[in-house]
Simulated assay, not measured.
Amino acid sequence: MSLHPAPIAAPLHRRTLLAGLAAAGGSAVLAGCSSDAPKPAALEAYTPKLPVRELWRARVSALPHPLQPLLRGDQFICAGDDGRVVAWQTASGAEQWRAEFGAPLSAAVGHDGRFTAAVTRDNELRVLDRGRLAWKAALKSAVATAPLVAGERVFVLGVDREVLAFDALDGRRLWSYQRSGGELLTLSQRAVLMPWRDTLLVGQGANLVGLDPTRGSTRFELPLTPPRGTNEVERLNDLVGPALRLDDSLCVRAFQSAIGCFDVARIRLRWSRLAAGVQALGGDAVLLSGADAAGRVSAWKTETGEIAWTNERLTYRGLGAPLVLPQAVLYGDAQGQLHFLSRDDGQTLQRLATDGSAVAVAPLRAADGTVLVSTARGLLLALSVG
């Protein structure tokens, strides 16, 4: 079948979950238990060198935990904390459609043009068929990763790293998968769940696993980095979603341990290197970028992993996952500032304030060039860059 979409205390259950650890932002992870938290770096003076203008703005309900908007074709699809989902045309901001899940959501939505899937905070998978509730299913685990809707199936990855497959039409459970000898500690944050040709790619610890979407059987398993440390917390190295697909390569971060790129077509690891960080990478065929938990920004050459430049002028500002644009590298921070950095050397080209709340998830860029930024207060800001 094709998977291309049509058109440190934490609670215990089966595994120990570090709830919301990375979602809080890098600086919060370091400073959350201390009254002597480092102060965010002051904003430096700069000379604007990149034109950026607002195209349109919209709002959803506040997002106390990050719900990554979805880009599908020429639509930005975003769910608010109240369970309402709205799709906007990327260039104009015209509303295309809206739907209602009827409950607060724990993760962003999946959508294939017909079916829209989401998981509520009560661990219930709900699937809409053209905007109307088609079926729902109780889940035993919390979910922080958006369901994947593809090939008339709905795939769900729990924070316990169990993968479930359901028939999109009637909700029948088709199969489940959980890697044997799994980790005792997992992250309650977005993980890797995505299609690649006729294979389902999922993160299991620091391993990229390829599954047969029809049966749930394992096709391959590729480690990004081996566990390190002397205890389970130090050895925690889950793959952080979303992974970045670049043709036949897949580039991804392992939590606080490494970054690297897989050659999925040849089923091999192209390269990996030690690099701390809790947020996903951004990048293109030439340049990757990511920040560590202290807000030190790095850029690497996509082909080799060689360091291209670093920027230490945004430390402790709670940087989110970046978007690498043709003109710049875009980071949002916990104060709602957007930082446009030079692809060549990391220098500030432009800065833009939003609504003062955190830009906690990666901005998106549509095929028409429209860039969408979302904030914790529910502001959606569409920009033209360059």
Results as ranks from 00 to 15, higher is better:
residue 48 P to N: 06
residue 162 E to N: 01
residue 346 G to I: 07
residue 248 D to R: 03
residue 205 G to N: 09
residue 224 L to W: 12
residue 256 Q to L: 11
residue 88 W to L: 09
residue 350 Q to V: 09
residue 18 L to H: 13
residue 45 A to F: 00
residue 311 N to A: 12
residue 336 G to M: 03
residue 39 K to T: 12
residue 297 V to S: 14
residue 380 L to G: 02
residue 295 G to N: 01
residue 253 R to S: 05
residue 248 D to Y: 01
residue 62 A to M: 14
residue 58 A to H: 06
residue 145 T to C: 03
residue 98 R to V: 12
residue 327 Q to H: 12
residue 106 S to Q: 10
residue 105 L to Q: 11
residue 44 E to F: 11
residue 90 T to P: 05
residue 182 G to A: 03
residue 365 R to M: 08
residue 314 L to D: 11
residue 208 L to V: 06
residue 14 R to M: 14
residue 18 L to A: 12
residue 319 L to Y: 09
residue 56 W to H: 02
residue 197 R to W: 06
residue 385 V to Y: 05
residue 136 K to M: 10
residue 263 D to E: 08
residue 245 R to I: 05
residue 131 G to Y: 02
residue 364 L to I: 07
residue 36 D to Y: 14
residue 262 F to R: 08
residue 310 T to R: 15
residue 293 A to M: 15
residue 228 R to D: 14
residue 220 F to T: 13
residue 246 L to I: 01
residue 167 D to L: 00
residue 299 A to V: 08
residue 193 L to I: 02
residue 144 A to L: 09
residue 277 G to N: 07
residue 286 V to Y: 11
residue 281 L to Q: 05
residue 370 T to E: 03
residue 178 Q to G: 04
residue 53 R to Q: 14
residue 128 L to V: 05
residue 145 T to R: 10
residue 316 Y to Q: 13
residue 187 L to H: 01
residue 28 A to G: 10
residue 219 R to P: 12
residue 241 G to C: 07
residue 93 G to L: 04
residue 102 G to C: 09
residue 137 A to C: 06
